[in-house]
Nucleic acid binder design. Structure first.
Lengths: 247, 247
DNA sequence: AAAAAGCGAGAGCAGTGCTCTCTTTTTCAG
DNA sequence: CTGAAAAAGAGAGCACTGCTCTCGCTTTTT
């Protein structure tokens, strides 16, 4: 599964002095404790003072390591993105190279499993934005796009391999503005798939996260769906059909 | 659009004494101010003391009207659900009675428009749950299900009218557990549509909210999609195809 | 008119984020 | 090896939060 030790610490070469090593260790401890508090009480209840208590240190001391509460949120955000990315990569890599349908299913199931296991982290990444907190794009963009990059990679590889059934997308017209956006994405990510395929990929992407969010955030009633695994499987198979992925 | 005056106050008959009328008015003021704070600063930053200040009263006085912060959240939750429900009803009712595709599009666009206009309220309803806060089902279930009830109603009416193209759903097998859940829903809501249709309806439901959440929560990058209206329109048309709704 | 209930003000408690100063410890340069 | 510099921890303090309690005052009810 996911490693227990957070790796959100910048490893600029080898740690030299013992003080530097201690500092890195302390930051790692703060992230670990913060992750525990996040899992137990949620993001809004994340308190630097409580982390300091668990660390066995007075509250002002943690400010030597973490600039403020938002900085800790950023560290936890990056940590969670990488946990999720690792899980997804592992699951997708376990599938046969040419079995794009299985890869898609594995990716979606990995996201769902992680989300159910770490609902607070999932909320932090994909839920309502924490008020007053703006994630610094230059630090979170790369880990934050690992899953979507992987998903798009699967779809594009499937397209290149001729594994996408074009009959699934009839005469759907892509408006000009959207086509421009998609062209930019295609260029930036070196994709081959045409507009209709990319647009459907976006829909599949949002739909997968919509289904998972409904489950994690409790939007289905409490007792509406008992067979949630079945439900998700079914949703995936329909989305697979939307994509034209032959199962 | 939506009325400016919140109606989340229980109107048990006519207000009798002036004190009772003043009380109802004060609660309405608290909800109105709370809604403003919610829109400006988000749910987690909603402070009873700040509401008290805006109300021109000392902080402990609001506890005469609202049991605690969670109670205020519940009032705002109900208020927001009803705002959204009113907007959706109005939009759907404006369409021709037999034009189910237009009704579906109107519903989805109404939700999206409201969500973009009131992102904090949307987050409260459909985002990460507020930690430590559990919405009291007996007060929120009815307003909270207005949209989905309306959506299912559209789909079921379309099915009864023979307006759903069954060719869209090939040999998709519904597992036993999911079929049981769907049967329970069908019974409870007096539906006629078969399992495959209901299951697709659930997918469409979660997909619509997934797309809106991605937009409102900023999950697309900042500049990834400039033509967001086009994108949403396209997603709706694909989902319409998934449902087999003839446009 | 007297009793009861409702209401607002104020003090107070425990918690939060964050800053500042002071002291101790560690690192580094000469 | 010694003294300066840097880093770290402790503690006090400020402004804020949710919430409780008590004390008077006003309105309603009996």
């Amino acid at each position: 599964m996911t490693p227990a030790e957070p790796a959100a610490v910048k490893s600029t070469g080898k740690p030299q002095t013992p003080r530097e090593r201690a500092r890195i260790q302390t930051i790692a401890d703060i992230v670990r404790i913060g992750r525990e508090h996040l899992a137990l009480h949620g993001a809004a209840a994340l308190s630097l003072r409580a982390v300091a208590r668990d660390l066995g240190v007075v509250s002002s001391a943690v400010y030597r390591y973490v600039e403020n509460r938002d900085e800790l949120l950023t560290l936890l955000l990056i940590d969670a993105y990488n946990q999720l990315g690792d899980d997804v990569d592992e699951a997708v890599n376990a599938e046969a190279e040419g079995d794009f349908a299985a890869q898609f299913t594995a990716l979606a199931n990995a996201v769902r499993t992680w989300a159910i296991r770490e609902p607070a982290s999932y909320s932090l990444l994909f839920g309502s934005p924490v008020p007053g907190y703006q994630a610094p794009g230059e630090r979170t963009t790369v880990p934050g796009t690992r899953v979507i990059v992987r998903l798009v990679g699967i779809f594009d590889a499937a397209y290149r391999a001729g594994a996408l059934n074009d009959a699934a997308s009839p005469a759907v017209v892509i408006p000009e503005g959207l086509a421009a956006d998609l062209a930019a994405i295609r260029g930036e990510m070196n994709l081959a798939a045409p507009d209709a395929t990319l647009a459907r990929g976006v829909l599949v992407w949002t739909s997968v996260f919509g289904a998972i969010s409904f489950e994690v955030f409790g939007q289905y009633g409490r007792d509406t769906f008992a067979a949630r695994d079945d439900l998700f499987d079914h949703q995936l198979s329909v989305l697979q059909g939307v994509m034209g992925l032959q199962g």
